[in-house]
């Protein structure tokens, strides 16, 4: 535990140094979302910079998935969202945001089950293709480099893949759009520990390409290990925030999300 903290601490210092200088990709101020009369998210403030992994942790039902849906334009929201320096209008459309380089890997993966792995990836580049880009094959090769398992399965139907492969495919499909902001919803959900480790290793590596990553996780331990900055979301409100290392050593976080059993995700569930 102490060793890990030390490692995080060293990460944190470099992260903190860079955090102030990098351009802000997404700046959310005072965001609220309601389902009918019930307000699911209250006055959320959130900031993500280029090449940074920001995680949102919290218990089941805290509003984490709602937050991503609102950011992606799938749900109407009140408040101010500034994306790539531009204030978003009230009629945010998913399609428009995709065009601007925002992608979401949803919790349910939402793959095209009766299509091959290759076709799923190809459709990830649909919007770029429509916009006149014809580099989908090169992009696919890059994705295969990141996920060699997918290259082996390229002819296989997405519906027949294992859980880990499905998650890889969902992430690979999102990367096909060459995103500026990649949002991952519970990438570890339902996966075996070894696979989780692999997935998070890849997430950490993706950071190097300069993409901003918003990582929503119940598996707080794994998330805080790869993230630069974290928010704790509880009953629709941000209860805590700070550099990951600070959060990881915060007694309240340890108590609620890390402490018990030491198995991370299992504790939060």
């Amino acid at each position: 535990m102490t060793a890990m903290n030390a490692m995080n601490a060293s990460n944190e210092s470099s992260a903190e140094r860079e955090r102030g200088t990098r351009p802000v990709v997404l700046d959310v101020r005072d965001l609220s979302v309601s389902y009918g009369k019930v307000e699911a998210l209250h006055h959320i403030d959130l900031k993500i910079r280029r090449g940074e992994i920001v995680t949102v942790i919290g218990p089941n039902g805290a509003g984490k998935t709602t937050l991503l849906a609102a950011l992606m334009g799938l749900l109407p929201a009140q408040g101010e969202i500034v994306y790539l320096g531009e204030r978003q209008g009230a009629e945010r459309q998913v399609e428009q945001l995709v065009r601007q380089g925002m992608t979401l890997v949803p919790e349910k993966r939402e793959l095209f089950g009766e299509m091959s792995v290759e076709d799923n990836l190809l459709l990830g580049a649909f919007d770029r293709y429509r916009g006149g880009h014809r580099d989908e094959l090169e992009t696919m090769d890059q994705v295969f480099e990141i996920f060699p398992r997918l290259a082996e399965r390229r002819e296989q139907l997405a519906g027949t893949l294992s859980g880990g492969e499905r998650q890889m495919l969902a992430m690979g499909r999102a990367l096909m759009a060459k995103p500026k902001l990649l949002m991952l919803d519970e990438p570890s959900l339902g996966l075996a520990p070894l696979i989780i480790k692999e997935i998070f290793r890849i997430v950490a590596e993706l950071k190097k390409t300069g993409v901003a990553i918003l990582l929503v996780e119940q598996n707080a331990r794994a998330a805080l290990q790869v993230a630069d900055y974290g928010y704790v979301l509880e009953t629709g409100e941000v209860s805590l925030e700070g550099p990951s290392a600070e959060l990881a050593s915060d007694p309240r976080v340890i108590e609620s999300y890390l402490g018990l059993g030491g198995k991370g995700g299992a504790a939060a569930r």
Binding site: L74, E95, R99, E110, F112, M115, F126, D127
Partner: peptide, 19 residues
Amino acid sequence: KALRATAMNRTGARLMGIS
């Protein structure tokens, strides 16, 4: 393929920018 994708999974297709 985009049309087939929409038929299979509307949400998934929207997230790919297939309106």
